[in-house]
Amino acid sequence: MTKPLKTTIGVILTAIMLFPVYWMVNVSFTKDTDMRADPPHLFPFNGTLEGYRAVLDQQLPYLGTSLLIGAGTVVLTLLLSAPAGFALAKLRPRGTGALNFVLLIAQMIPGIIMAMGFYAIYLRAGVLNTVPGLILADSTIAVPFGVLIFTAFMSGIPDELINAASIDGASKFRTFRSVILPVSRNAIVTVSLFAFLWAWSDFVFATTLDGGGDYQPITLGIYHYIGNNNQQWNAIMATAVIASIPATLLLIVAQRYVAAGVTAGAVKD
């Protein structure tokens, strides 16, 4: 396959994948009276900016909070899961099977049950309706995932690399910091990405643990448009469109970073 051909195919595949996203954008510009038009309007001709006006008036603070929560969750997740992944993949102490097992169970607990459990704990600890509390809760979605992913990726790192370091007299911690982490760039980016995305799109924790908070994430912001009897769909979709712009940019940057890391030969034997 030639490269221009690949680009063409890539663009077509992306277009198919993103069609539902286009449809969301389309609805975000549509007037109430046209939303269920039959046949549907393919383009928002004769559309409205009503949805966007509402969003720009009300949603920007929520967006900031979401970014903060996303970033906090990423940091916490990496701090906890990268060392654990290294230990499980390369040091393999006895009992790792059991730990893997616990990590799996941990991911199976329904989010709503986790949230109800946290509610009781947070209420007593006084962290209900705070941003750090929500970061902590959101990290529980990502930490078990992070440990498993780091384990899977780090077990692919050749042992000679670690042996060489320990011959040089490096401590385990130094080996981890200056040998393992640099070659685990892909795993770090992957885990960060998902930690961020989960925190970004979390709703269950947000509503249970931060429903009365002064700083709330964008998923709760959407509820401005979901009234008790009526939903304002163009504004809901407009919120999603606006909220996805900063995150999309972030993704594109992160993806370039992965690609750059690879071409620069970060993974080398």
Binding site: Y122, A125, V127, P132
Partner: peptide
């Protein structure tokens, strides 16, 4: 007991802010 242990952990993480509306 668990709650107390968690309260300590949570306190460390939040510098003991008392933002909750409970209790």
């Amino acid at each position: 007991g668990l709650g107390a242990a968690l309260a300590v952990t949570a306190c460390l993480l939040t510098a003991c802010s008392s933002g909750g509306d409970g209790g």
